[in-house]
Amino acid sequence: MADEFILSIFRGDADGGQEVEYRVPRVEGMVVLDAVHHVQAHEAQDLAVRWNCKAAHCGSCSAEINGVPKLMCKTRLDEYEGQTVHIQPMKTFPIIKDLVTDVSWNYEVAKKIPAFHPTVAAPFRMQQWDVDRIQEFHHCIECFLCQDVCHVLRDHQEKSQYYGPRFMVKMAEFEMHPMDRADRIPQIKNEGGIGLCNVTKCCTSVCPQHIHITDNAIIPLKERVADRYYDPIRNFFRKLGGKGDESQPE
């Protein structure tokens, strides 16, 4: 067991940069963020890193560790015994400096999500078991690792066409709420671009909160979109019931 870890941290900004190697003394149980802080304190005071809680609750310290999107505060260094640990900024977002990226696009998308529209004015009562399934979505810490790994955003840069997994979870949270009356399906299909997701489940695999993003949020939403737009028999009965043709894009 080595008495130090070797880190290779990206140093640079939007104009370019390169990885710089640092050696950090081993401390039992240390996580990647501990090591980055050690580098910042002893070798590179100008190293930029975003962090807050150091407890996997704030979602600030997202980075790519040996190519895998992870929270630095939740990744133990002893997972990388005998390896050089490459730490890089999230690839999907523009670099500001070193490990800090500009994730403001996500906040612009968040503004497009319609707020909760209750069917009756609060306070109201609802059954706990009716809302159980959306509790999972409340665990999201907005680390944006799912946005980072999503190939639609990462490789195809379709940020103007697809909201990304995080905001599909947000949409699902409201759409499945028993007291919400807003019709979000047209937005999910059109501006939200849910059809661009091809359910390869990378978002689920990197979620530090273990939210079943694909199975419990995106696929149920896709099925609701199919109910509305792609199911000819349901559309026939909808028309028969006088609800008009809702299959047209809005």
């Binding site: 940069g17 190519g67 890089q88 900024p89 690839k91 840069q157």
Partner: peptide, 14 residues
């Protein structure tokens, strides 16, 4: 691609 000059992402290992 997002502009990240100089960043050489290694192949991930899940």
């Amino acid at each position: 691609q997002t502009s990240q000059p100089g960043v050489n992402h290694p192949k991930p290992r899940f």
